[in-house]
Computed example of a mutant assay.
Amino acid sequence: MTTEARRHQLQDNLNRTREAIAAACADAGRAPESVRLIAVTKTFPAADAAALYGIGQLDLGENRDQEAAPKAAELAAQSLEPVWHFVGQLQRNKVASVAGYADWVHSVDRGRLVDALARARKTGPRGGLNVLLQVSLDGDTSRGGTPIGELEPLAEQVAGSDSLRLRGVMAVAPLGWEPAKAFALLNECSEAVRRVDPAAAEVSAGMSGDFREAIACGATMVRLGRNVLGEREAMA
């Protein structure tokens, strides 16, 4: 597919996605600008990320540093500056790399990761890093996320850092759960974090199959890939 044809395809997909978000907001009695679209570009080339930026989609998401870091560097070399959101599970050996390009990290879920991010960001040139706390809604932390009972102490740890900015919460609906149940519980978790910092009101929830339910339950960010970029090839 030619670059121009792909750009038109991305524009059409983006328009449809924004219309779907606006419709979900209308159903929930919310303004469409209250929900921020994160276009997740994982497994797609840097050319697609650059094209999205060029048509006005400034928030881009990635979930693996080994793919995200070179993609971010390639766009930076073109003087393109999207807002990069790291949305995948983050290992401490990748912290220094992620802290170098990410504007937001959605998956902070343990104290040692907070400490590592704070140190890495403090020594970099980019200022404070926006942090969302990933919550394990069902308590199974093997898929990432902090248990609900440990959320407020973790929030206090982030809030006490001078190089991190506590912004809110993130979750993925557990397997087998009704999305509405999951995101209603996440909204309660958001209230707990806002007791630590009232400004930490962002709620990152909802992917391609459940973003409408997430918006109905108060999500302020939705993480969509397939809707905008099309079907992905299987990852190696």
Rank of each mutant, 00 (worst) to 15 (best):
M1Y: 04
M1K: 07
T2E: 12
T3A: 15
E4N: 09
E4A: 15
A5L: 14
A5R: 13
R7E: 14
R7G: 03
H8F: 05
Q9S: 12
Q11F: 04
D12P: 00
T17P: 11
A20D: 10
A22E: 12
A23H: 10
C25Q: 02
A28S: 13
G29C: 02
A31C: 00
P32E: 03
L37E: 05
I38A: 04
I38T: 14
T41D: 12
K42Y: 12
F44Q: 14
F44A: 07
F44E: 07
P45S: 13
A47G: 09
A50E: 12
A51F: 02
Y53W: 13
D59T: 09
D59I: 02
L60W: 09
G61P: 12
E62F: 09
E62A: 06
E62L: 10
N63H: 11
A69K: 11
A69D: 07
A69G: 05
L75S: 06
L75Y: 06
A76M: 10
A77R: 13
Q78T: 02
Q78W: 03
P82N: 08
V83S: 08
W84S: 07
F86G: 05
G88P: 07
Q89R: 14
L90P: 08
L90S: 04
R92H: 02
V95F: 02
A99Y: 04
Y101K: 07
W104I: 09
V105Y: 01
V105G: 02
V108P: 02
V108R: 02
V108I: 09
R112F: 00
L113W: 02
A118I: 01
A120L: 01
K122Y: 01
T123Q: 13
G124Q: 12
P125N: 12
P125H: 07
G128N: 05
G128K: 13
L129A: 03
L129D: 02
N130S: 14
N130V: 01
V131M: 06
V135K: 09
L137Q: 05
R143Q: 15
G144C: 08
G145K: 09
G145Y: 11
P147S: 05
I148S: 09
G149E: 15
E150K: 13
L151K: 05
L151A: 11
E152N: 00
P153I: 04
L154V: 10
E156S: 11
Q157Y: 01
V158R: 04
V158F: 12
S161Q: 14
D162H: 04
D162Y: 00
L164C: 01
L164R: 01
R165E: 04
G168W: 06
M170E: 07
V172L: 15
P174L: 03
L175E: 14
G176V: 06
L185F: 00
E188F: 01
E188H: 11
E188Q: 15
C189A: 13
S190N: 13
A192H: 04
V193S: 01
V196E: 01
P198Q: 06
V203T: 06
G206R: 08
G206W: 07
M207T: 12
M207N: 08
S208V: 07
R212G: 10
I215Y: 06
I215S: 05
A216L: 05
C217L: 05
G218C: 03
A219K: 12
V222P: 13
V222W: 08
G225Q: 08
R226E: 14
N227S: 15
V228E: 02
G230P: 13
E233Y: 00
E233F: 01
A234M: 05
